[in-house]
Structures are given as structure tokens and as C-alpha cells.
Nucleic acid binder design. Structure first.
Length: 661
RNA sequence: GCCGGUGUAGCUCAGGGGUAGAGCGGUUGUUUUGUAAACAACUGGCCGGGGGUUCGAAUCCCUCCACCGGCUCCA
């Protein structure tokens, strides 16, 4: 055996090290500063501890805190430090799992004697973590047999369960906690604290410290609501102080955009306690936004060949027996009211069965297909009490729901044009950063044959691929009657929202025995496509409000122009121009001179009105306005009224926003 | 539904066993203003609901409700 190793570095160079050298030795040989910040190493594409001995010819990259791999390692190690801190503060704690998540980590605990964490405990735990970090504890990796592992964690029931699960084959979640199935690995920090973990970890706790514990929450063991509920602590951790601050700033930014806050500030909607959770009323200003959204949607759907249908909010239960909804989702439906000698009536949670009945109301010919039925259908779902959330998760909502019945031959073409229709509409609302998700057959909860499912799935996949957007697989995420494509949109601050869904359904037409007469004179089963573009109108509005931070594009703004006369003497001119604008369909008001100019401008700015027009002596004499556009601190003077009107109408027509000069 | 937190005026919040407060808002009057807060007076509350402890409860205890953050769920 030679006494040197050749190691390939990411920049293409190579470096010789003595046999037996570790990744840390490599980092040291490259530079002492690198060695000081090094967290782990990537050896032939696998992230490993710095203590790993290198082998000749390996490609090695030293992992630093600012890289994706580095963040993952330091978050994971920080989670272990948190576990140790909790165990120190609450001896006898059972600790469960502590993975990394986007932007941070969590760890699940069961405190002794049914104790609970409070928010105040977070500071105590943080302080204890900082002590552990200042102790520069090493992370010492060891490997054990299964039997040793069971022995080592004899007093940790959750760890024992994980080890036994790994022994039995295990899920990827288990193996990431423990090891690969024949051996398990542990990391020891001190004589009294060892955790089961696959690793890798930072070499010493001294590498950590840029973190913050965020919140405490309940979480079911293994995500199963029938199993014990543990106490979960969430934290965030970063490679630099700046990155942490940036992340905290992002959270504040998200809070600033919260549609619930903006909805109250801008007087758009509210949730009167008298109505019950998850039931919203739209105020006049919110009503404008909603009406404009719906009107635009109607116009586009008419152009795209949809026909408009209507259905009642309540129906006998038979309908949902036939559709299968009662079987799968009765928990999520409002309980029935019994009428007419035991007849059970339900509020509708879905529109599709109604549309099928419309299809079935008479014999259908292939010449009528594809038949596209659209409805703004209000549905009611009894969401569990803990899940309602602003307009995004409500108990009463309106779907922009459509069902397309078509032949098997038409299916692919129909889906293709549908997908581009959907994306084009979303772009008109200012969302333009998309990816697609394909949700496939749910394992336990599906009707239909394997052939039907695989045909549906492969058709959807082909359509999604043809669109050329990024496609992500969501295994088992489909509905019980068919797979779906969902359009995911990234908003202005990088969050993703599930927007439109397109579902392919061979089942409901069968369950309802829907048929059409084909060109060969045979009764034939149609294919059904379910699709919602906004999803729910309420939720879509919420997403738009957050995307634009309340400053909606001019065409959607509840109030588009406020005219502010400098003094009462200019009121006539202001009202005259507001009449002109209103005749052009502009939503405009005049702020009379009862308050100082600055106050009236401030009020309009706080309402995020796109244009504030100030009119004074010069304007009255010259037929001009002073234009204060939203987002600008530098108003334009002496703009001719006609020029402003043209510019405004063009902006509204193009779905634009005020151009800040 | 489960875990934790929070409920005081329309809004944002202070007060923590002894007569319920501020700012903003609203109303009225005065002010007539060139680009983000004029001045004054007035108005505002079963301190989330119910029960209990106490001579006395916004304050302490129990319970219900609502909201907030998560978990589970999401046709």
C-alpha cells in the first residue's frame, strides 16, 4: 500500500495526503481558515463526517456553512444540541426524531410526568444550548449492532421503536434516523448524551450558534393522530448572522402581507363571530375585487367554449352516496338535516355530481362533446376546528368549478388546451412563476381498475410534460376517483401555493352511469375532467392580496383613483373629472377639502389606491391634474386630464400596475 | 379533533384583588389647505360567555367559545 493518497478537489486539482488522512486533514492542508469553518465533507457525492478517513482517488468537497449541504448538517446538529439541552433541563425526557426542514429543524419530545413546554421555556432551552455550544462538545460517531442499539436506548421508547422498524426494513424516515438496516449509528456528545442518528454531523458543537428557537407545537408521533402527541420545538439555523437576520426579516415580511390583516385594514372582508368559524362576509371593497375576478373569469370561459350552469346548495344524500363522497368524506361534510320522514339532506361539498345530472338530463350525442360546464359553485365543508385559516381554509367557499365531459379520443387534446388556458389566466392575474405537480393513485383510497388509473396517469403526465414546465411527482396524492395535475405558483416572496387543479376521472361517469351515443350508434361512457382554476375564489383572492401585499394591480383595485381638491374652490373641477372617469368605468372618488391636503393623501395612500390626483388653481385653469402614483414619492404635475385618462384606461385594460416614474 | 398561546373601546395596546386607561378611529364645530397625520369638544367598554373563590374579581380557579401558531386532515 502506498503511503500517500491522491484526492480530487472540486476545482479539478488534486492533492496528496498521507494514508489514513481524514477529510478534516484535507481541509487543514488546504487552509487553516477552511478547516476552522468546515462542517462536513462530500466524498464521492455522499455527505460524511469530517473525521471520515479518505481513500485514494476520491473526489472530495469540504462542506462549509453557507452551502446547501452545510446548512443541512448544521441544522441537524443544532437539533441534537437542542435535544441535549432539553434532556439536561428535564431529566427523563423521551426524545423522538429531530430532522431538518426548510430553513431549520425540529425535534419531538415527551417530557416526564406529562409536563408541557411553554413559549417561555424556549429562552431557557436556547440558553442551555449556548452553554453546550460553548463546551465545544465533539460529535463522536459509533456503529453498533441492532442488539447493542436496543440495549443502549433501553430507556428511550421512541428510539427503540425506530431501531425495531429499521430492523424490519423501515421507511426512509427511519433509516435516516438510524442507519441502513444491519447496523445503526450513534453520535455521542457527552458521557450522558448519545443520540441515534445516521449523521453526518459537525465535528464539534463549537461550529454552531447562529440559530433561534421559533415555537413549540404539538405533533403526533409518526404523524398518526391515534398515537401519542409529542411536544415539538421548531428552530431555525443559518451559516451566518446575516442569513439568520434575513430569514427573520422574511418572516416579518410574510406577516406584513398577511391577507387577514390587510383584509381588515383595507376593509375587504371579515369573519363575524356570529356566523361561526370559517365563514366570511365580503365588504363592498372586497366585493369589488371578487366581482372583477369573477367577471373576468366568466368572460374568458365564454370565449373558451364553456357553458354556464347552476345548482342548489343542498341535496338529498343519495347523490353523494352515488358519487362516493359520503363514503370517503362524510367527516368533512356538514351533518345532514332530516326532513320528509327521515329523508337526509346535505349541504353540498362538491359540484361534480350536479353537473353529471345535467349531463344525464337527456340523451347526449357525441356531437355535443366536449361538453364544458362551468359554475361558480358555493360549497360547504365541515373543516375541523383547528384548521380554518383566514380565507385560505374556510367552511363555506365558492369554487370556479368546471367539468368537461368528452370522449376518450378528445381527452388528451382537451387536457392540453385546458392546461395552457389555465396558465394564461393565472398570468393575467400576475402570477407567472409556475411548476406542475402530478398526483397519482392514493394507495388505500381509490376506486377503479389499475388499467384505468395507469391510463389516466400517463395521459396527465404526457400533457404536463408537453407544457415544458418543471414537473414534480406527488406519489399517492390523487383523489379517490382519479389522478390530477396541479399548478403550483411561486409568489412575490418565493412561497409556493397550489393553484389550479385538473383531475382526470373515469369513475364518476360510471358511478352515475353517464353515457352518450357515439358515431357507431353505441352507448359509450364519457371521460370526465374536473378542474378549478382559482380553486376557491376566496383563497385565490387571499393569495393575490399576499402576492401584491395589498397593492393590487389597477384593474383589481377596489378604488382606482382618488381626486383630492386642494381647497373647496377646486371641488367642482374634481367632481367633473371624476364623472368623466366614472363614465369610462373607472372606480373613482373625490376627497373633499374637509381635512388638510396631506391627511387626505395619507388616507388614500394607506388604502393603497393606485392613483391620487391633486387638483388646485393651476389645474383648474389648465385642465390638468397632479398625479401621485402608488409607490412614488415624486408626484407628476400638469398632466393633461385626457392624457391621464388614456394612460389609466390602457393600464386597466392591460392588467398593469402604476408605473412609478 | 389534538397540543401550546392569546382574548380589555371599532383598531393597536397599557393596567394583574379596592371607582376601567392611552393613542388612533367615530361624531360635531372651527380650519380651505399643492403631495403621507390641522385644532377643539364630545363619543366610546358586562375587561370573550358562564360558573366558582372572596366583604370585594378585568385581575385568582373551573368550564365553554373565538382567534393565533403547529399536528392530523384537505373530495
Amino acid at each position: 500500500m502506498s503511503d500517500t493518497l491522491e484526492i480530487l478537489l472540486p476545482d479539478g486539482s488534486s492533492r496528496s495526503l498521507p494514508t489514513g488522512a481524514t477529510a478534516l486533514n484535507l481541509a487543514e492542508s488546504i487552509g487553516s481558515r477552511l478547516a476552522k469553518v468546515a462542517l462536513a465533507a462530500i466524498v464521492d457525492d455522499v455527505v460524511v463526517d469530517l473525521s471520515t478517513r479518505l481513500t485514494n482517488g476520491s473526489r472530495v468537497e469540504i462542506v462549509v456553512p453557507t452551502s446547501v449541504a452545510g446548512l443541512d448538517v448544521l441544522r441537524h446538529s443544532t437539533a441534537h444540541v437542542m435535544a441535549q439541552a432539553v434532556v439536561r433541563l428535564w431529566p427523563g425526557t423521551h426524545f423522538a426524531i429531530g430532522p431538518t426542514i426548510d430553513n431549520g429543524f425540529y425535534y419531538d419530545f415527551e417530557l416526564p410526568d406529562d409536563q408541557r413546554f411553554s413559549e417561555l421555556d424556549l429562552t431557557r432551552i436556547e440558553d442551555e444550548m449556548r452553554v453546550i455550544i460553548s463546551e465545544s462538545q465533539p460529535f463522536v460517531r459509533r456503529e453498533h449492532s441492532m442488539a447493542e442499539g436496543l440495549e443502549l436506548f433501553g430507556d428511550q421508547p421512541f428510539k427503540l421503536e425506530i431501531i425495531r422498524a429499521v430492523q424490519a426494513g423501515g421507511t426512509s424516515e427511519d433509516t435516516s434516523e438510524a442507519g441502513d438496516g444491519t447496523i445503526i449509528s450513534t453520535y455521542q456528545n457527552t458521557d450522558t448524551f448519545t443520540d441515534l442518528c445516521r449523521g453526518p454531523h459537525v465535528p464539534t458543537t463549537a461550529r454552531l450558534g447562529i440559530f433561534k428557537l421559533m415555537r413549540v407545537a404539538g405533533a403526533y408521533w409518526r404523524g398518526d393522530e391515534k398515537r401519542p402527541q409529542l411536544q415539538r420545538i421548531y428552530g431555525t439555523a443559518w451559516g451566518t448572522k446575516d442569513a439568520l437576520d434575513q430569514h427573520l426579516f422574511q418572516l416579518e415580511e410574510a406577516e406584513r402581507r398577511d391577507h387577514r390583516t390587510l383584509g381588515a385594514q383595507l376593509d375587504l372582508f371579515s369573519f363575524p363571530p356570529e356566523l361561526g368559524p370559517g365563514l366570511a362576509v365580503f365588504h363592498p371593497r372586497g366585493g369589488v375585487i371578487r366581482r372583477v375576478m369573477e367577471d373576468y373569469s366568466r368572460k374568458r370561459h365564454v370565449e373558451a367554449g364553456y357553458e354556464f350552469v347552476y345548482s342548489p346548495h343542498i341535496t338529498k344524500g343519495d347523490l353523494f352516496e352515488t358519487s362516493g363522497h359520503l363514503q370517503w368524506f362524510s367527516d368533512g361534510m356538514y351533518p345532514p338535516m332530516e326532513l320528509d320522514e327521515g329523508q337526509r339532506y346535505y349541504l353540498k361539498p362538491m359540484n361534480c355530481p350536479f353537473h353529471l345530472l345535467i349531463f344525464k338530463s337527456r340523451q347526449r350525442s357525441y356531437r355535443e362533446l366536449p361538453l364544458r360546464m362551468f359554475e361558480f359553485g358555493s360549497v360547504y365543508r365541515y373543516e375541523k376546528s383547528g384548521v380554518v385559516h383566514g380565507l385560505t381554509r374556510v367552511r363555506g367557499m365558492t369554487q370556479d368549478d368546471a367539468h368537461i365531459l368528452c370522449t376518450r379520443d378528445q381527452m388528451q387534446g382537451e387536457l392540453t388546451s385546458l392546461l395552457s388556458f389555465v396558465l394564461e389566466m393565472l398570468r393575467e392575474f400576475g402570477l407567472d412563476d409556475f411548476y406542475l405537480e402530478l398526483s397519482t393513485r392514493p394507495p388505500e383510497k381509490a376506486v377503479g381498475t389499475d388499467e384505468e388509473w395507469s391510463e389516466a396517469e400517463s395521459t396527465l403526465e404526457a400533457v404536463a410534460r408537453a407544457e415544458g414546465l418543471e414537473l414534480v411527482l406527488d406519489e399517492g396524492g390523487g383523489a379517490f376517483y382519479g389522478p390530477k395535475i396541479s399548478v403550483q405558483a411561486r409568489d412575490a416572496i418565493g412561497r409556493t401555493h397550489q393553484m389550479s387543479t385538473i383531475q382526470l376521472d373515469f369513475q364518476l361517469p360510471q358511478r352515475f352511469d353517464a353515457t352518450y351515443v357515439a358515431s357507431d350508434n353505441q352507448r359509450t361512457r364519457p371521460i370526465m375532467i374536473h378542474r378549478a382554476l382559482f380553486g376557491s375564489v376566496e383563497r385565490f383572492m387571499a393569495i393575490l392580496i399576499e402576492h401584491y401585499a395589498g397593492a393590487l394591480p389597477t384593474w383589481l383595485s377596489p378604488e382606482q383613483v382618488v381626486i383630492v381638491p386642494v381647497a373647496s374652490a377646486h371641488a367642482d373641477f374634481a367632481y367633473k373629472f371624476s364623472d368623466d372617469l366614472r363614465r369610462e368605468g373607472v372606480r373613482v372618488s373625490v376627497a373633499d377639502a374637509t381635512e388638510p391636503l396631506g391627511a387626505r393623501i395619507r388616507n388614500a395612500k394607506m388604502q393603497k389606491v393606485p392613483y391620487i390626483l391633486v387638483v388646485g388653481n393651476d389645474d383648474v385653469s389648465n385642465g390638468t391634474v397632479g398625479v401621485n402614483a402608488r409607490g412614488s414619492n415624486d408626484p407628476e404635475r400638469d398632466v393633461m386630464t385626457l392624457a391621464f385618462t388614456e394612460r389609466l384606461l390602457a393600464e386597466i385594460a392591460s392588467h398593469g400596475r402604476p408605473e412609478v416614474v
